[in-house]
């Protein structure tokens, strides 16, 4: 067990290292010159060269890599080329914003998704099931950015009920969280349903039913409890996905989070910012995957053999 854990953690560290290095060199493969972008469209060649020097981009790439990695080990993410302020400063408000948004999205989508899934499973092949699954399959088929715009045009433009942008009040999180959570809600509803159907076919459920236990306690106390572990795992994995998926949603709502920052940073070729953001996105993914792997190993010791 311990050996398995150590192996998993080492593998994760290796993946992280590869990701860091790959991203560092990949961003520099992107055509386009940050010095030119930052100097501006009307800048002279001389301006561009001055900017390049002041940003340290005239140094050899390998030297820049060493500077970057040694900074990373000290917890220094570097300085944004675009704003000339530390990347950590750029992240200070945006990261919590995105986490808040993702948490709100996961909260509503998990609640609705699980209820919908259980409801469908309980009424399998009846109209409730069809309705539930129609909602769910629609949910995964709706493009995020489209839902966002439809919500804005209804609730902000037409009805003036909810703000379509901002991060300063709870109200301004509602529309983006709804948008971001729709797909996850649908995925969770489908997953919960199939997992519940499997559980409801198990022998212990038949036993429970034959003992005369009512359908509601059978569903929740027995079947759902046993589905919980896998449902929670999926929620965890979706959370990592959500933080990445927020790129499009944030763009729609001009939301001041790390997704918007990524798009801006890419267009400015802000290398330190892009590197840090992709590292953060993948870190969430990798860590959640690690936890999932470990959980599986703990819950299902057979897996170590494979």
């Amino acid at each position: 067990m311990v050996r398995y854990l150590v192996k998993k953690i080492l593998e994760t560290l290796l993946t992280l290292f590869i990701v860091t290095t790959a991203v560092f060199f990949f961003v520099r493969m992107i055509p386009g010159d940050p010095a030119r972008v930052i100097a501006g469209e009307q800048a002279t060649l001389e301006d561009v060269e001055n900017v390049r020097e002041s940003l340290g981009l005239n140094k050899p790439v390998t030297e820049q890599y060493v500077i970057y990695v040694s900074g990373l080990l000290k917890g220094d993410l570097g300085t944004s080329l675009r704003t000339k302020r530390p990347v950590t400063f750029e992240l200070k408000n945006r990261y919590p914003n995105t986490i808040k948004l993702a948490s709100m999205a996961i909260l509503w989508s998990a609640t609705v998704g699980i209820l919908l899934g259980v409801w469908s499973a309980r009424h399998r092949t009846k109209w409730q099931d069809y309705l539930g699954m129609t909602i769910a399959v629609s949910g995964i088929s709706l493009p995020n950015f489209w839902i966002g715009f439809m919500l804005i045009s209804l609730f902000s433009v037409k009805l003036h009920l909810l703000p379509s942008t901002g991060t300063d009040s709870f109200k301004s999180f509602i529309l983006p969280a709804l948008t971001l959570g729709t797909n996850i809600m649908a995925i969770l509803a489908r997953f919960t349903r199939s997992s519940m159907i499997e559980q409801l076919k198990e022998d212990y459920i038949r036993t429970a039913r034959s003992k005369g236990i009512g359908e509601t306690p059978v569903t929740w106390k027995h079947a759902f409890r046993n589905s919980m572990i896998s449902v929670v795992t999926v929620i965890g994995m979706q959370f990592g996905f959500l933080i990445g998926g927020s790129v499009v949603t944030e763009q729609v709502f001009a939301f001041n989070g790390i997704g918007t920052l990524l798009v801006t940073s890419v267009s400015f070729r802000d290398y330190p910012c892009i590197q840090s953001l992709i590292l953060i996105f993948s870190l969430h993914f990798i860590i959640i995957n690690l936890i999932v792997d470990i959980l599986y190993a703990v819950l299902n010791p057979e897996i170590q053999l494979s």
Partner: peptide, 18 residues
Amino acid sequence: FKVVTESATRVSMIQSGD
């Protein structure tokens, strides 16, 4: 000065008095 990159949002802000 609030940064609102989405045009439609900027328009709805002035209409709603935000």
